[in-house]
Design a protein around this nucleic acid. Structure first.
Lengths: 333, 333
DNA sequence: TTCCAGTCTGTGAACGTTCCCAGACTGTTG
DNA sequence: CAACAGTCTGGGAACGTTCACAGACTGGAA
């Protein structure tokens, strides 16, 4: 029992040849019922499991996919979205017996490592997460021609990296319309970083609805952190003290904005209505609870996996997928 | 350029043999400076990267570690702690050029898959996360005798699976003492699930300080969710309306407790002081901000990785590590 | 009966490494 | 000058699979 059983051992026990065992393993046609049964029994008896390395060596397939998290070191910030995404992806891939290797791409060294790993043929596909615009790693991946998809668009590379995402733009419109319908007249926004799809598109949706009323003065940029929500709100209040609503592009930043508003003595929603985005766990723990836009995050992750599997299975081209968002009305707006 | 270069190609370009290239790759002794330089040059020129499958096949080492997330499906809940842990682990392992494979173990099928994967020799070690007491998968892993560690104790298997963790018990004592020093007389607690170390030890710490005053009536059990914090708080208020403080074993549950208290018209901290645990992002977005216990999560993850690497490197035995917590005083207590 | 198509099985070769052994070459010591 | 230890190199064998091919056996059609 010191050594793990090999395909030879199984063959010996079953009284057949290597080839037949291999055929059973990969359920090829042309295996007699008797042989099939004997092999199955032998596998159970010996506790055999195939050695993926040996298999990969000849098939040139690895049975694994690498997920790349692109966030600079210093922003190890706690985005609950990651957990959901990772778990969903792992689960879906597991059904196909594909394993998920995690890599982070925070600095250039990391990015090189990812490239080397992929170029080394250690993965059948790449799943990009939170990739920033202008990332050279993306071009390298395209160059290697490995199946690659992204959760959330890769800004500037939409045509070459298929993705699945929530409809950020329409979500922003939903929220902005909601604020207008509630009778708000002076609506500001705090956006995400302008090199991320969420940052760009949620601002576009906001502008779509407000048209020329979305003046430069009413726009502040954050970086998704709670702190940036606080300071963005402070700047807005200073510049436009009479604003009566603010659409904040993430719940976490909205929590920050709420703190600033409270400190400034503004009541929410009476004086200022606040709308968030994400419907993450934060939305329920603020006071008052956040009116926000729900993204179907699990579904987005599933769709992303589906796209990747299609590419791995040989699809020439797959269409990106945009899933609808939904307005969740609570008390902040 | 259709095929990836192999060690043979490098050898040919460098004008040496396979063996010499291999020696350079694994920096063995006994390679002449000239040969070394020639090989290095040839590697750069050909863009060669070693094929890990072929290497693993002969070395019986995989260069990867599997992280197992044990949470039942239905509780895909958003625990921000996972993100930090995963990123820290990936980063530390990457420094040693070890990759991290993620698996979830939500149901029996999942657990079988993990066992099969490990038994198949596809990983050099196992990193357990949020493993529950009595999980048979753990025994199977021990049986296979693969290096395994856990982040947070595996209840009932502490002696056989080394772990790193925050000092839950002392953390709970710190909070309880703080509440007493603030003059609170009737202190209740909402615990985590009693099959998790956090659930058990934070209650123990609470009881350590309160002694016989920690009566059964003042204890409620939650399941880490915000909702369970709400309902637990409701039951406590009903049973002991005159309580003046509550120690909640996680920030997320504490957020739920705050909501219940507000609905019941109790002021925090004036009428009831609330203490949380974790110092997660939630703690800052509640109103009032939570007084809580900070766990050094990144350090705990690093220590866990360190233990695992030591085991993989052949250490017979490693000692579990407990890291100190710290009281963070904000406004809720 | 002969032939053929379909079904099933065994075996040699290949995948890209590392390991190990044999042997060549160097310089030092007696 | 012989002997030896130390340094360096090349190449055969092995790791555990899959793949392609050749061949054996079946049953039915001509």
């Amino acid at each position: 029992m010191a050594k793990r059983p090999t395909i030879h051992d199984v063959a010996a026990v079953a009284g057949v040849s290597r080839g037949t065992v291999s055929r059973v393993l990969n359920d090829d046609r042309y295996v007699s019922p008797a042989a099939h049964a004997a092999v199955r029994r032998a596998i159970a008896e010996t506790g055999y499991v195939v050695n993926r390395n040996a298999r990969s060596l000849v098939t040139q397939r690895t049975g694994s996919v690498v997920m790349v998290l692109s966030e600079p070191h210093e922003k190890l910030f706690e985005d609950p979205n990651y957990s959901v995404t990772i778990r969903t992806a792992v689960r879906r891939l597991a059904e196909r017996d594909i394993s998920l290797v995690m890599m982070v791409a925070g600095d250039d060294g990391d990015r090189d490592r990812v490239i080397r790993y992929v170029r080394g043929g250690h993965a059948d596909g790449v799943f990009l997460l939170s990739t920033h615009a202008g990332d050279r790693m993306v071009d390298a991946l395209v160059d290697i021609a490995i199946p690659a998809v992204a959760l959330g668009a890769v800004v500037g590379r939409e045509s070459v990296i298929p993705h699945a995402a929530a409809d950020d733009r329409e979500g922003a419109r939903q929220m902005t319309r909601h604020l207008i319908e509630a009778g708000r007249k002076k609506i500001a926004t705090i956006t995400g970083p302008m090199d991320t799809p969420g940052g760009i598109q949620r601002l576009e949706g906001f502008a779509d609805v407000l048209g020329r009323k979305a003046s430069r003065k009413l726009i502040e940029h954050g970086d998704w952190t709670q702190l940036s929500g606080e300071s963005g709100m402070a700047r807005l209040l200073e510049r436009t003290p009479d604003l009566d609503a603010v659409f904040v592009a993430s719940d976490l930043m909205a929590a920050g904005a709420l703190a600033t508003l409270r400190a400034a003595g503004r009541r929410v929603p009476d004086d200022v209505a606040v709308g968030g985005f994400d419907d993450s766990s934060v939305a329920l723990s603020t006071h008052p609870p956040l009116t926000t836009i729900r993204q179907p995050l699990a579904e987005v992750a599933e769709e992303t996996v589906r796209l990747l599997l299609a590419l791995i299975d040989g699809a020439e081209h797959v269409e990106s997928v945009i899933l609808p968002t939904r307005l969740i009305v609570r008390e902040s707006a």
